[in-house]
Structures are given as C-alpha cells and as structure tokens.
Design a protein around this nucleic acid. Sequence first.
DNA 1: GATATTATACTCATTTAGAGAATAATTGGA
DNA 2: TCCAATTATTCTCTAAATGAGTATAATATC
Lengths: 296, 296
Amino acid sequence: MVVAVTDQGPSILTVGQGSALPSGPFELGHRSLQSGLRAWVEEQTGHQLGYIEQLYTFADSDRIGEQRQQRVISISYLALTRAEQAAGPAQRAWRRWYDFFPWEDCRAGIPPMIGEILQPRLLAWADGASNDQVKRERRQRAAAGFGWDGHAWNEELVLQRYEQLYEAGLIEEAMRGPRPGVSLPIPGIAMTADHRRILATGIARLRSKIKYRPVVFELMPPVFTLLQLQRTVEALSGRLLHKPNFRRLIEQQELVEETGETTADTVGRPAKLFRFRHAVLDERVVSGMKLPLSRS
Amino acid sequence: MVVAVTDQGPSILTVGQGSALPSGPFELGHRSLQSGLRAWVEEQTGHQLGYIEQLYTFADSDRIGEQRQQRVISISYLALTRAEQAAGPAQRAWRRWYDFFPWEDCRAGIPPMIGEILQPRLLAWADGASNDQVKRERRQRAAAGFGWDGHAWNEELVLQRYEQLYEAGLIEEAMRGPRPGVSLPIPGIAMTADHRRILATGIARLRSKIKYRPVVFELMPPVFTLLQLQRTVEALSGRLLHKPNFRRLIEQQELVEETGETTADTVGRPAKLFRFRHAVLDERVVSGMKLPLSRS
DNA sequence: GATATTATACTCATTTAGAGAATAATTGGA
DNA sequence: TCCAATTATTCTCTAAATGAGTATAATATC
C-alpha cells in the first residue's frame, strides 16, 4: 500500500484499473522481503519506495477469493512517499483512499451516509441475530465503532469498521463466492481479493502512528508551511484540527525548524516555511504528534 | 511466544532445553495461520492458547542461521495465558524472560550491568566506526536507547536495544556463522535461530500494548487484588509504579469491579478482591492503562 | 496495647489539553 | 489610499490529567 498526499487528499498507488494494490511473489532472487517488495512495486508502477513498514500477514483462504487448494500467504506493507514522486507517467494509477472508504472522511463533519445508509443496514443486521445476547452485542459494537449513542468518533477504528461491515455482508467483497449477496453493497469502491482489507489495516496503522512517531514528514515536501502540515495530518486522520493548538504542539516538540523563507503565492499573510529537523530522529525517541481535535 | 506471569515474574514457554520457542510449519490441514499455530503449540507443549496476536513476519536468511538455498518465512505470534495454565507437566519448559534480557529489568533500578558491561562495549563499538559521522550517530543511538546523557529510560525500546547489541556484535546470536565472534557475548541466554529477536519484539509489543488496551487481564487470575495487578504490570514493563496513582487510574477507567471478598492470607490490612469487567470490551474501545511511573 | 505491615483515601502543585480571542501581515478591489 | 477579506501568528483562560507525597484504616505479631 503506497501512500502519498496531494491536493486531492491521501491517495494510494493501484494497478489493474485501480482495483488492486501492487504485489508479487517472494522469489529466491530477492534478498529480503523488503527488497522483493521494492522490486515488484518498481516493476509494476515505476515507483521507487522510501519509507516502508510491515503491516500484517494474511492467509485466510476464505477471504482472498481463491481456490482452497492453493495456499497464499500475503505479507502486506505500508509505504509512504512524497507527492512529487507521485507525479509522472503512472499518475493515473493514483486513487483517493476515501473513494474506497467514504465513511472514513469526517473533515466536513460525520458523513451523512453513515446515518442514512450504514446505520439502518447495520441495525437490520443486528436484529437478524438469532438471540438477544448476540443482538445486543452487535448493536453495542456498531455504536462504539461508528460513534452512535454518545460514543465519540474514533478515527483509528478503520479496520474494525470495515470488518464489521464485511461481517454484516454490506461490503461487495463479502458478497462474492458461492453464495452471492442479494442486496446492493454500500458505497465505496471494491478491490481484488482482500486488498481493501489491507488498505483498511494501513489507514488504521497510519492514523495511529502519526500520533507517536513523526512519520507525516515522509509525506511532506522538503519545505512546507505549518498549515500544509496540518492539512496533511487532517487528510490522513479524516478530522479537523485546532490550528493554534496544532502549532503549539509542533513547535513545543521542536520537530521542525524555520527555513527563514516565507510563501509568496498565497492570499493573506505569507506563512513561514519550515523543514523537518532530521536530527530529532537520532537525538531522542521521537514522540509523534498528538492530535488537537477541533469541534467545528 | 507464549507468556504467563508467575511469582517468578514474566515467563515464556520454551522447547528444546529452553532455547527455542514452540513453532512449526503452516500446513494444508490448517484452516488458518492461527489454528495452525494453536495446533503446533498444543502438540509441542500441551498448552491450549487463549489470547493471541500476530507479531511480525521475518524472512532474513542471514539472521536465522540456515542455508541460503532454503527460504524460511517466520510468522511470529504473541500469546497471553494465565499462570494457572502454566502449571502442570510442561512446567519445566517455562523460563523467565529476563534471563534472556537481563538489561530489561529496571524494577530494582537500572541494572548495574548496563553501566558496567554494555556501556563500555557499546562505546568501544561506536569508536570502531570508520568515520566521525558514524561514530557520533552510534553514540547518539546508544545513549537514546539505554538512557545515558540525560536521556530517560524508555521501557518500550526492547527491540531497538537488542538490535543495537546485535549490530555491535555483543549478542551470541550475532557471533554465529562463517565469522565467529572473538570476544565473549554479554550476559543473557541465547536462543535458536532468531527466536530471541522474536522475544524482543513480543516484549516490546506487550509493554506498549498494556498502555492502550486492557491486555494485562489475560495474564491475571479471575480474581486479584490491585497490588497483584500492579505487580504484574511492573513485571511486564520492568519498572516500578506509583501505587496511589495506579489505583486511581484503574478505578477511574472502571476496568475492574469489586467481588465483595477480601484476601485473608496476607500480613497487614486485607485487600479487596477485584475482577475484570469483561463488559468494557463491548461498551467502548478501551483505552488501556497509562503507567504512572515512580522514581524510587 | 504498641508496632509493623499493607491497604486505601486525600491533597496539592504542575503540566497538558481544549477552546477561543486578539493581533499581524498580506492581497484585491472600492 | 483605504477598507474588507484572508490567512498567519501569538496569547489567554479554563478544565482536566499527571506526578508526588501525606494521612488514615485495618489487619497480624509480639
């Protein structure tokens, strides 16, 4: 899962009409999992990867839509890359990640589809349970996951939400196989095999990790304004942040330093330009950035 | 990596004279990775696993001490089990985890071996670097990892510390292979292949996870006192906690409820007994327990 | 009945987080 | 030229969480 952030928001690199993640078999020629990964991504997309981290290893034969005889083990990785890199010939292969998870973007408030589509269908699914115990437990889980009944929205629960929608049979991928679904899937682009699950895992990991490691900077250009940084974090986490408090956090932690320059091309007061202080990576075990959430 | 906590402290289940973790190949008969895992552990140790979570997938041929021709992919898991389960015929296979990582137990203060053995050898290794840039970077990393030069001790850096000691050639496992080490390895029991690395990964994961998910309770008996709970957390994290504040945190979060009973067998005032409120797992996404560290 | 020992409850200062107001430096147009 | 609009930046205030220590309670032992 290769991520970059553009004006379009967070996007991922896809192959095959945008429905699959770049991937390939681990072969004897590969020195390590990571080098094999880099080779496949470069071959399939022309992209050189920078920061990568392992996500999860899947081997559920019932989830990948393949024959039971074949044993496929998928070792998934998350890669972060800069928007500049994202340009070029392969550009059409980038797709916004919220196209796959429309319910995960709460920057303009909780998306109406959650109340209008997901809630009724999840409640219907809960009511379809055989006994009251299970019914209650399903409703409870849905409420905690989607922020109903006084539960706060938690942007990190991407995978739990996806899995619950899958379990409820509302996701297109869950309708495949011998017993195809009878109803329409909910909005959100489906993917090959369990690639959308890998995506959900990666988004969850990234949303969690930006809070305790300074990984956002892997997605930023070398020089940026604090608002650009904030917008990137907001795009990833799917929530709006409180500007002055975001500033305070960033400066307190000394994650960035001024370049001395300011932006020229903007409307309004020009903003100072900053760069990431790479030195912090050695100096200390860096304690990412907590998100100063904003109501509005 | 199967973990239980006894009076002896945190222990892990081993096979083969205590130098290897239970493991086995993923076969066609296994429904999933998890079920294959459970089958192997039960066969090799007689133990039924409860809570498990995936750790990491390794495939570095140079780290497992095997032939280059053979491609082994190790998918490692962390399992938590109760001390009761730990008794029985397989008992001798349990080993304290600090026997493998003596530098990780700071409950009685920073272990002297860090200053007496690790520091001089790590600094010597740093000075052996070819140029000043690398020298400085190595010293910096060691200081941040082991808490020198005003850096605070961070109990979560288990893997980083192990990897650095490995890189410096101080770990027995790093002295194997074609070019055997010339000097003595530092204290700490070595293991087969890269099993000690898996252990380091698991300890790090657990130390981090107890802070944001209520996983400690997987290691507790059904009923316990708050001090027993505290001692367990301390044993895992390798640090002492501030008793009143620990109490406050636990009760604030309503993770436990009183059973109404008290302990009889103790010296001093009898302690109330508590049990884990399993309901919290449904009610909300539980926000583990932050560690109220103590100086003394 | 004093003392040791452990449990439990409270207090206080400091830091951090959440929210909003005030001020500064631009551009674009009246 | 001056005013509105726009964005950047700095401050202030309040509430909550954290870190540390003290006080009180209930038991066993001598």
